[in-house]
Amino acid sequence: MDNQDDSFISELFEKIEIPAVSADEIEFVCDTAANYLPNTQKKTSFWEIILLELSTVSLLFWAICAAIMVFSAIMIRYASLEISAIAVIAVISPIPLLLCIIELLKNRNPAVTELEKVCKYNITQLYVAKLMIGLFCNLVFLSFITVFAAGRDIDVVRIMLTGSTVMFLLGFIALIVTCKIGKSLPVMGVLAGWILISSVFISQDNYLVEIISNIQLMGLVAFFIISAVLFSYYLYVFAKQIQFLRIGDIEV
């Protein structure tokens, strides 16, 4: 296309007739859009959002967490000594957090997004609150299991550090998947994949458990800090992206 044709097309574009829109019609759009102005949203404290979210977490989520917790505690406490407490905690520790991320993504559909626009709270805070609840629930979960495991003459600090490290690491991977793909199915894949792979490895060979058991405490602390930092960083990235994240059919 040469310059002459180029300018001809430009001239044609200038002649396109676009229907007029009246001032009243534009004013109506302004009135509607005004409902979405940033500080028409009521200032709600983060703790109020957390309490609000706590009341809306599904019963199924709590039931699954409780069932896994009781099952794991019984396994560690009463099963024969052949089952390593560290192995059990490594397998189950990220589950509550990953379930929380899956629940968060599954509930985000176009209808919910429309509703969120008129919510009295900030959407970013809402999703971070959801993840904080998952994290807190996970820590309670790990503490409970650790207390039960303590009766078996096991290093409580070591088991807590291993569980928390795995939780943060898998949480970090799940957040990457969420930010890149934005769908619940791949996060389910991460969860299922972890359970499958770790179960197979640990049930067939105690070698990995031995390696974890032999790591110096400072080494475990270092792994824990690295994984916590990675998770926190990606939680920050997620919080920044959530408003513009393509989730399902939604694209802003």
């Binding site: 396109i16 829109v21 534009i26 759009v29 302004c30 005004a34 102005l37 940033p38 500080n39 028409t40």
Partner: peptide, 24 residues
């Protein structure tokens, strides 16, 4: 910061352009 007047100005400035884009 929630200034309604500024929002009206922005919408009125760009309304026709965006409308024309969709109309095309």
């Amino acid at each position: 910061n929630g200034d309604r007047y500024a929002m009206d100005m922005l919408i009125k400035t760009y309304y026709q352009s965006v409308f024309a884009y969709f109309y095309c």
